Computed example of a mutant assay.
Amino acid sequence: MSDNRELASLGEFRFECGESIPDLQIAYETYGEFTGENCVLVCHALTGSAHVAGSFRDTTTDQASAWWEDIVGPGKAVDTAEYYVVCANIPGSCYGSSGPASENPETGEPYGTDFPPVTVGDWTRSQRKLLDHLGVGRLHAVVGGSVGGMNALDWAVRYPDDVRRVAPVATAARLDAQCLGMDAIARRAITTDPNWRGGEYYGGPAPDDGLALARQLGHMMYLSKASMERKFDRRSAGRDAHREAFPADPAADFFPYRDVESYLDYQSTKFVERFDANSYLYLTRAMDDYDLSSGYESDADALAAFTGEALLMSFTGDWHFTVAQSERVAEAFRATDGDVAHHVIESDHGHDAFLVEPGKVGPPLADFIDDGLAGKAITDTKTDQSSDFAPVHASLFSR
């Protein structure tokens, strides 16, 4: 297992927007030994990093442990004793790869909003360039959760001959209007913070209040109603609890400071200490922009060249990327006569389930990586009645 982040200088990189930077820097971590045909690429989620596994503290991201520590490692679902695992931080992020907070070599100052707009396609292309740098050709598998699942799907479209198996987890072919609207509100919270100053805040006060609000909204998107009720209910945090993120209005002392409010304040306070506001703007726009069928007549047309195997995984309590949305991607694979299964996991944890329920995610993922769709823990909603899903889980937010 690796215990340090590595940095690759990949030279000039032209983004899909047409703009370029002279030297794309990609932070990445590798695990296991490369044997030529055993590479598994793991794509991280929106505010994730290359630190997918390993028990050391990552000082760049302030992660005491890795974000998928229970899934990636020796003897785990993505077994680093057998596979060579690569996880790369995406362009536009702030965890080591080139992004708005990086130095612009032409000015010696951070790029800020002069950094080129990024897309999910740029993420995929940068990963392909990194893998070329590492001497990796065809991938055994690409795995990703949330917007990382969109990244995984893009591999099947953009480099169909370079991937043997693709596993998009808790993802969709595109965001729906509800999620697009919430992302727009989150960005507005940042850009209306007086400290944002058009993105030129480096060296001065950062737009922490705006970023904190954006993060709070994100947390509300990632949790399900049932999990929030179970975790917080209407409980009060107590009269001595401190409102950490924002000052209260004068009348607030009359009312309880509730557990859910305290949780959101704490999470947002920790987040602004480690993440860049401009990166949040860039990455949410990339996610919003992604459309599997872009440039093609349909989702099925986009996937037609992919001849490998695909495993879609979704969670019944996830209203951010719903079971129904994942099923539509599976249907697109089926329309091409592709080898695909859609494995639905019963969970009331919301979108975070792919991170917090490794016991349910690990077995089908491990079987798929090892044995493809023949894996014994894999079920398909179209062939196994025991894994039928109830559309009620998705109806409120997917229409």
Score class of each variant (00 low, 15 high):
residue 3 D to G: 10
residue 5 R to V: 13
residue 6 E to T: 07
residue 9 S to Y: 14
residue 16 E to T: 11
residue 24 L to Q: 08
residue 25 Q to I: 05
residue 30 T to S: 14
residue 34 F to E: 10
residue 47 T to D: 02
residue 47 T to L: 11
residue 66 A to M: 02
residue 78 V to P: 01
residue 85 V to T: 06
residue 88 A to H: 05
residue 93 S to G: 15
residue 94 C to R: 00
residue 116 P to Y: 06
residue 131 L to T: 12
residue 139 L to A: 01
residue 140 H to C: 03
residue 144 G to K: 04
residue 150 M to W: 07
residue 157 V to P: 07
residue 160 P to I: 01
residue 166 V to L: 07
residue 176 D to M: 09
residue 177 A to C: 09
residue 188 R to W: 05
residue 195 N to I: 01
residue 213 L to H: 01
residue 214 A to M: 12
residue 220 M to L: 15
residue 223 L to D: 05
residue 224 S to H: 00
residue 237 A to W: 14
residue 245 A to T: 09
residue 246 F to S: 10
residue 246 F to H: 12
residue 252 A to C: 05
residue 252 A to D: 12
residue 255 F to H: 14
residue 255 F to L: 15
residue 266 Y to G: 04
residue 266 Y to M: 03
residue 267 Q to K: 11
residue 267 Q to H: 12
residue 276 D to I: 02
residue 285 R to Q: 10
residue 286 A to T: 12
residue 293 S to Y: 03
residue 299 D to P: 12
residue 299 D to I: 01
residue 313 M to I: 14
residue 316 T to H: 05
residue 328 R to Y: 05
residue 332 A to Y: 01
residue 337 D to T: 09
residue 340 V to E: 00
residue 343 H to A: 00
residue 345 I to E: 04
residue 345 I to H: 03
residue 349 H to K: 06
residue 351 H to R: 05
residue 355 L to Q: 08
residue 357 E to D: 13
residue 357 E to F: 13
residue 362 G to T: 00
residue 373 L to I: 03
residue 373 L to F: 03
residue 380 D to S: 11
residue 390 A to N: 15
residue 391 P to G: 02
residue 399 R to M: 04
